[in-house]
Amino acid sequence: MENDYPEPSPEEIDRLYSRLEKEARQGGYNLNSDGEFARGLVKGLLVNERRYGYQACPCRLAADDKIADLDIICPCYYRDADVTEFGACYCALYVSKAVLKGEQKLGSILERRPPKEERQKLQPQPEPQSKSLLSASVAEPRAGPGTLKLSVPVWRCLVCGYLCGRDGPPEICPICKAGKERFERFI
């Protein structure tokens, strides 16, 4: 069992940590205030980026396949629900305000990500051109054009739920920085 990548340097870890910290604050999220703990996870993100080409969740086994792992690129699709229910994401990189203030204690968090077999069932069949968004939950818009008259479609960020009306999803989510491939067509 040898490490198969060069170790990220302390400077690299600091740089990503500072960026995530700033982005979290701007988006209304909080990083774990245990700096050493959080830095350990940030290091894992850098290691995974080297290994797989994307920042897969450090506490989950990545498939080395970006499409199969779209849901566990950090921040993952499960973060917000876990922060709401348990006070922290699965890894505890992100925590709730209550945890930050010490009003809520962190415990072990159950894995919310469905097992591989169920995820495969949820995966939509790839669709032609721009509709192929590889969303893990909804392939078709939730409301059809007959229900609502819209000048542009509505896109939903699968990580944080941000909605916007425009021809295509934004390059990155302005709230949580998820890439456009992690948006679904909502309406």
Binding site: V47, N48, P58, C59, C91
Partner: peptide, 9 residues
């Protein structure tokens, strides 16, 4: 365990 996971550590 996973080598990147802090809970595993």
């Amino acid at each position: 365990a996973l080598s990147t996971c802090i809970w595993c550590k």
